[in-house]
Design a protein around this nucleic acid. Structure first.
Length: 617
DNA sequence: ACGCAGACTTGGAACAATATTA
DNA sequence: TAATATTGTTCCAAGTCTGCGT
């Protein structure tokens, strides 16, 4: 059944993409209105067609447990382009003298050269790791010469790449267009697969190019050489009766398997941490969407039992068993502060970061009294991606007493919860509710916070801009809860200033308009003639418009300032049940495009289709 | 219970495309 | 129209969590 259906659809979508090219080009040549009208009609038609084309997997029945697909066909990964040697006039210098490097050595040199003005290259660990790995790939002759990184001069190579990227930016429109077409062709060929009769977009269809590993935070492996992925490293996963992808000319796959209990299309082992990397589908795909939906359904089930769970962990604060007490306090942190679970990590292999269960004594300070509050716990640790978590929280007396107990006779570097780890915690959670694990609390608390904040902040009298500010504020509350931070944008100060200038100018305009209105009113009082009356109306309208514009600018400024160091994206994409947002949009007449861009709408297509304005998380 | 591999989600930064401003 | 700011996309690292073997 899927076969025939699929073919038809494939054809349709191809037609569509060809059509898309033309209207844009022809528009300029035609008279504006005529062209646009035609364009509009066509766009509408296309939209409708696309609608029909979309796979509404959420209306279908679910597969049996564990089986993820019955048909899977794809082209395999698209491999990173091979190394292109430097032109002869671009040289590497050792100890002030030019030195021609072997191809492999040169390639690795370019990795370092490209990063020259990055802070990474100033770090000793980075330099050492790089130099060690580089030397390993050198010929024995090179090894004898190149013994000191400080004597290596990559500046000419660096300049070559800077110039190259400048040149690429300066390319003419036509050349850029050509480049884009080539990229699109690759995307068309390798960027999609057929899954159960439907053409689905792949998330990452390219293998990662070789380069220098950039860990985050204080990573012991930063600067190490990330090797080129070859077909011989790659395991292909596809359907038994589908066409097996061809390896590149002269190469073989490491393995081809037909495992329909997993969702990946290809995998390889990465040489830095010796872990697997996968090629998987785009978030808009059924496989990802269904899982996402399910995630929110689990979180909604938690809503029904969370009161019971809270009551229980509070009771457990008094348990005779130390293990239970630790579990109860940790769970309290996870619930109240939205901390991550905190798996153990292998020491020396990664940056030293922690989550709840892996907190150490040195990460918290206890203050019996602080700033007028009692029982304050001061958290200060590096979490995922070495993002700092800093928070002062007033906690229940029992929690405070327990923490004192857990810390007694311990060194700063000792585990706070020495009788607990994530698997103990998760096993317990699983026993409380099917499918419950630590991360569900983050999802649940994020989503419920959004719903509550939207309820509290939205004013139906507001215009769309005002409502959007409320939305952003609700979103922000969640991002703060989850500690989603970003570095202040480089242009922040400047763009804030620009905005202020605009606001001042607008204020001026408003004042002027007020005066003019006054004048017009006075004139009308004197003359009482119709023309003057009309003029009053006109001035009133102008004033109103200007005031609205001013209000909008002020809203923008507030939003910007409040958002300075907060990253909203992650919560929006991963923690907030999209149905909450969609229901809100429908309820308050805010177009969905205002809160979700195209990619986001594709990811949340299931939610957009199924949520109505009364959806309750 | 424990360690480990595997599979999958979550995360900020870098880069590219687009919109806005000068 | 070029320069700049903003928004969207890609990249790939870094988490979580389950299941399996011992």
């Amino acid at each position: 059944k899927p076969e025939g259906k699929m073919k038809e659809k494939g054809k349709k979508s191809k037609e569509k993409s060809e059509e898309e090219e033309t209207p844009g080009k022809t528009r300029k040549r035609k008279s504006k209105e005529e062209g646009e009208e035609k364009n509009n009609k066509k766009a509408k038609k296309e939209k409708k067609e696309e609608e029909e084309n979309k796979w509404k997997w959420w209306e279908e029945e679910k597969k049996e447990d564990g089986v993820k697909w019955t048909q899977l066909e794809h082209r395999g990964p698209y491999f990173a382009p091979l190394y292109e040697p430097l032109p002869d006039d671009v040289q590497f210098y050792y100890d002030g003298k030019p030195l021609k490097l072997s191809l492999a050595t040169e390639e690795i040199a370019t990795f370092y050269a490209k990063m020259l003005d990055h802070e990474y290259t100033t770090k000793e660990i980075f330099q050492n790791n790089f130099f060690n790995d580089w030397r390993k790939e050198m010929t024995s002759k090179e090894q004898k010469i190149i013994k000191d990184l400080d004597k290596c001069d990559f500046r000419e190579i660096h300049k070559y790449f800077v110039d190259k990227s400048e040149a690429r930016k300066a390319l003419s429109k036509e050349e850029k267009q050509k480049l884009k077409e080539e990229a699109d062709k690759i995307q068309e060929e390798y960027g999609y697969c057929i899954l159960d009769g439907h053409r689905e977009k792949i998330g990452n269809f390219k293998t990662e190019p070789p380069g220098l590993f950039r860990g985050r935070g204080d990573h012991p492996k930063m600067g190490m050489l990330k090797k080129r992925i070859m077909p011989e490293d790659v395991v292909i996963n596809c359907g038994k009766d589908s066409k097996i992808p061809e390896p590149p000319e002269g190469h073989k796959w490491k393995e081809v398997r037909f495992d329909n209990t997993v969702t990946w299309l290809a995998s390889w082992t990465e040489n830095i941490q010796n872990t697997l990397k996968y090629i998987m589908l785009n978030p808009s795909s059924k496989l990802k969407g269904e899982k996402d939906w399910q995630k929110y359904e689990v979180a909604r089930r938690l809503k029904d039992v969370v009161h019971k769970i809270r009551a229980q962990y509070q009771a457990d604060w008094k348990s005779k068993e130390m293990k239970k007490r630790q579990r109860a306090v940790a769970l309290y942190f996870i619930d109240k502060l939205a901390l991550r679970a905190g798996n153990e990590k292998e020491e020396g292999e990664t940056a030293d970061t922690v989550g709840c269960c892996s907190l150490r004594v040195e990460h918290i300070k206890l203050h019996p009294k602080l700033d007028g509050q009692e029982h304050v716990v001061e958290f200060d640790f590096l979490g995922k991606d070495s993002i700092r978590y800093y928070n002062k929280v007033s906690v229940e007396k029992l929690v405070f007493k327990n923490l004192q107990l857990f810390m007694k006779n311990k060194d700063p570097a000792d585990d706070l919860f020495d009788r607990l780890n994530t698997s103990i915690l998760n096993r317990h959670l699983q026993s409380l509710m099917d499918g419950l694990s630590a991360k569900v609390f983050r999802t649940y608390n994020a989503s419920i916070t959004l719903q509550e904040q939207l309820k509290a902040l939205t004013n139906s009298e507001d215009n769309v801009a005002g409502k959007l500010l409320s939305y952003n504020r609700a979103n922000r509350a969640v991002a703060i809860l989850c500690n989603h931070q970003r570095s202040t944008p480089k242009t922040f100060e400047k763009s804030m200033q620009n905005l202020q200038t605009k606001i001042d100018a607008k204020k001026q305009q408003v004042e002027e308009a007020q005066q003019e209105l006054k004048k017009a009113e006075d004139e009308f009082k004197d003359t009482k003639d119709a023309k003057a009356e009309a003029n009053v109306e006109k001035k009133k309208k102008l004033l109103k418009r200007l005031e609205e514009q001013l209000a909008k600018l002020n809203v923008q400024a507030t939003d910007k300032e409040e958002n300075k160091q907060i990253a909203l994206g992650t919560s929006k994409l991963n923690y907030l049940d999209p149905r909450i947002s969609i229901a809100w949009c429908k309820k308050f007449g805010v177009p969905i495009e205002k809160i979700y861009n195209k990619t986001q709408r594709e990811k949340f297509a299931w939610a957009i289709d199924m949520a109505d304005e009364d959806f309750e998380f």
